Amino acid sequence: MPEIPAIDIDDIIADIAMVFHWPPSSFDEMTISELIKWHRLAAVRIGQNE
């Protein structure tokens, strides 16, 4: 089984910002749950449905 690379909050924020073109201030008030939700939506948007 291939190893899944570790991902941290900075990676999650960078991915979301890249896909949705949001500024860093957009993430100041988000909870971890919200970040994960938006990260999943960003992955779907770029075709990474895994």
Rank of each mutant, 00 (worst) to 15 (best):
V44Q: 08
L41H: 09
A43Y: 07
S25E: 15
Q48V: 11
D28H: 15
D8C: 04
D10Y: 03
I4G: 05
F20V: 02
M1C: 10
I32A: 06
I46N: 02
S25R: 15
D28P: 04
A6Y: 06
I16R: 03
D11V: 06
A6N: 07
V19A: 02
W38E: 13
G47K: 02
H39F: 07
I16N: 01
A17E: 08
A42I: 07
M30G: 03
M30N: 09
F27S: 02
K37W: 15
S33A: 14
F27C: 03
M1D: 06
I36M: 08
Q48H: 12
S25A: 13
L35Y: 10
N49R: 10
I36P: 00
H39Y: 12
A43H: 13
E3N: 06
I16M: 01
S25N: 15
I4T: 14
H21Y: 10
I36E: 06
M30Q: 07
E3T: 11
F27H: 02
G47M: 04
D15L: 14
D15N: 12
R45Q: 07
I12A: 04
L35G: 09
W38S: 10
E34W: 03
V19N: 01
R40T: 15
E34D: 05
W38F: 14
F27G: 02
P5D: 05
S33V: 12
W22Q: 12
I32P: 01
P2S: 11
I36L: 11
G47T: 05
A42D: 04
R45N: 04
D15E: 15
E3C: 03
D28M: 05
E50Q: 08
F27P: 01
F20M: 04
I7K: 04
L35D: 10
H21I: 11
I7C: 05
W38P: 01
A14W: 03
W38Q: 08
S26Y: 12
P5T: 02
I36V: 10
E34I: 01
I9T: 13
P23C: 02
S26E: 10
Q48A: 11
A17T: 05
L41I: 12
D28Y: 13
D11F: 08
N49W: 06
N49Q: 07
I46Y: 05
S33Q: 15
I36T: 08
R45E: 12
F20Q: 01
M18C: 09
A14P: 01
S26M: 08
D10M: 01
Q48M: 10
I46L: 06
K37G: 09
L41P: 00
K37V: 13
A17D: 02
E3G: 03
S33E: 15
V44H: 07
D28V: 11
M18L: 14
P24A: 07
D15K: 11
I9F: 05
A6L: 13
P2L: 10
I32N: 06
